[in-house]
């Protein structure tokens, strides 16, 4: 069971002088329980790709298949297929319209025809997944703090019980504790069998959290693979607008000094390697 985008090509303002190819032959796949990151600079096409996964855009060529079903965007089947894919937009708080948190979270499942006790169950479950207290359900979403609002926004997508969760820069604008809390929530959802597709420009998070990473550069695939390999590739062939995390840059510098170590290492791992190198040199 997986979500798959195959050879997607998409052009904005097609046929006009302002035509821009946002995606050119991009493929990506995520199975349940996997964490896949889509990384790229602003304008790399990563958000456009995320919207394809939710069947919001019709690709010029290529297709999206969800659990083996290929539905044409805009069709009735697409609406059904879309239910399996939750999409959290960038700054999702901006889509709030309801007067209570409960109503806001209930929006998605009630659109899919869930009602009564089942709807209540969906709401409570989603709220607890997102780390909202039951008391918060009756609050006005606009009275909450930034971090809590983000949680409501994520709960309002989780309430449809998606199998695949696509998040576009979900930590933007949150403070440190907000980021930590959200990352932990996503980690847990992932280990419970949900696929997490994380759209970000933050290489540090992508390298430390993902099973696989796809890096886009101006709508074209730059590199795709497991974090270690992607880091190796990017250290040789940097992508404009992406900054490698300090530990990777440091490890790279160490290699140039003749110390060999994996590029994606934790700080204590780097220190261990250094200690070893030092004792070898003393001998």
């Amino acid at each position: 069971m997986s979500i798959e985008a195959v050879d997607i090509k998409y052009v904005y303002n097609a046929g006009t002088s302002a035509a821009v190819t946002a995606l050119d032959g991009i493929s990506i796949e995520a199975g349940r329980g996997e964490w896949v990151s889509i990384v790229g600079h602003t304008g790399s096409g990563k958000s456009t790709l995320a919207q394809h996964l939710n069947l919001l855009l019709t690709p010029f060529s290529g297709f999206v298949s969800i659990d083996g079903v290929r539905a044409a965007p805009g069709s009735r089947e697409a609406r059904a297929a879309r239910r399996k894919v939750g999409l959290v937009f960038q700054y999702p708080e901006s889509q709030f319209f309801a007067e209570t948190v409960r109503e806001e979270i209930a929006f998605a499942p009630s659109n899919w025809g869930v009602a009564g006790d089942a709807l209540d169950a969906c709401v409570t479950e989603a709220a607890s997944w997102a780390g909202l207290s039951p008391a918060a359900l009756d609050a006005n979403p606009f009275s909450l703090s930034g971090g809590e609002r983000r949680r409501v926004a994520i709960a309002s997508v989780l309430s449809a019980r998606p199998d695949y969760l696509v998040l576009d820069e979900p930590t933007a604008g949150l403070d440190a504790s907000g980021v930590r809390g959200l990352t932990a929530t996503l980690r847990e959802l992932c280990s419970n069998g949900m696929a997490v597709i994380h759209v970000t420009h933050d290489m540090e998070t992508a390298l430390s959290m993902s099973d696989r990473i796809t890096v886009l550069e101006r709508g074209v695939l730059a590199v795709s693979g497991i974090p270690e390999r992607v880091a190796e590739y990017l250290s040789q062939r940097p992508v404009k607008g992406l900054v490698m995390p300090p530990s990777v840059r440091f490890a790279q510098g160490l290699r140039e000094k003749g110390v060999s170590l994996p590029l994606v290492s934790r700080v204590d791992g780097i220190i261990e390697v250094l200690e070893e190198a030092r004792s070898r040199r003393k001998r």
Partner: peptide, 30 residues
Amino acid sequence: IMKAQISRGADFESGGLVKRARAYIPILAP
């Protein structure tokens, strides 16, 4: 906003006039 609500299952295509008009509240309010 429209895309965000569609991705949460909002439906602007089915139902009578009143239902369709109501479907636009989640877009207009935000």
